[in-house]
């Protein structure tokens, strides 16, 4: 598979798996406004998935569709970062994961709007507007809960401690990222990390939360080398209908 195809899968699998995770809250959130917000965020992410995986399927040129890639690949073919497959935990953990991913996603999409691949730039220009909106809400909620009650503060600090080791993978450059950078398709992850750290640092300061003093990073998701045990469980739920009734449609 070409580096470009790998990169498109990374973008589409991140939004697909996170979109599915967030959709698990539908009907279960603490208040209706949050339920609606989570469902809308999930919907945007699934919509972006259709564009990324649609393009990935086209570039692959084997006649597969975005749906085929989403519903008929197995865990080892997925290229999402490990963070997005982590279980939702409590509401605070879900929103912490959302904020950390949104902050990365926003910088990545901003960089992609000037991609040397016009199709990538078009998708990014569309998605960045939605993600700007996502990060406003997830950032506000992290601040509200972090700088909230003793209970909410403690849960948000736990969530940050739990999620932090999954941040590094998003910025760890490998051969695919290096080729995307040299061909001008995607931005420099080192530069993204600087913007990410500034944004996340400011929000965590407002939220009175302490960023763990560790650079340790779990890896293996975006390379497909080793996903967490959670991805297979997500797929059994997400893909069962297409697996049980191949080709079923509305």
């Amino acid at each position: 598979m070409s580096a470009y195809s790998e990169f498109l899968l990374r973008m589409g699998d991140n939004t697909l798996i996170l979109g599915h995770r967030v959709s698990e809250w539908c009907g279960h959130a603490p208040v209706i406004e949050e339920d609606i917000a989570l469902a809308n965020t999930a919907l945007d992410l699934i919509g972006q998935t259709q564009m990324w995986l649609g393009l990935a399927a086209e570039v692959e040129g084997k006649g597969r569709t975005a749906d085929d890639l989403a519903m008929l690949r197995d865990a080892w073919d997925f290229r999402n970062v490990l963070m997005v497959e982590k279980p939702n935990g409590d509401f605070g953990q879900t929103l912490m994961r959302q904020f950390l991913f949104d902050a990365f996603h926003l910088e990545m999409l901003k960089g992609l709007t000037t991609s040397s691949e016009p199709r990538v730039a078009e998708i990014a220009a569309k998605a960045v507007k939605e993600v700007q909106y996502h990060v406003e809400r997830s950032g506000d909620t992290v601040i509200g809960l972090g700088d909230g009650t003793a209970e909410s503060h403690a849960r948000m600090q736990d969530a940050l401690n739990f999620m932090w080791p999954y941040v590094g993978e998003m910025f760890a450059s490998d051969d695919v990222d290096a080729e995307m950078l040299s061909t001008g398709i995607a931005p420099d992850l080192t530069q993204l990390r600087i913007a990410f750290d500034a944004h996340v640092g400011a929000v965590m300061a407002d939220a009175t939360l302490t960023i763990p003093d560790s650079t340790f990073a779990h890896k293996g998701g975006k390379s497909g080398f080793q996903h967490t045990e959670h991805l297979g469980h997500i797929l059994t739920q997400m893909q069962w209908l297409q697996r049980a009734y191949p080709g079923a449609s509305w």
């Binding site: 406004e33 949050e34 609606i36 917000a37 809308n40 965020t41 919907l43 945007d44 909106y133 406003e136 809400r137």
Partner: peptide, 13 residues
Amino acid sequence: RISQFGSTPCKAQ
């Protein structure tokens, strides 16, 4: 403002 999101993706409450 009650919520940044609403009954459809294009609306807020």
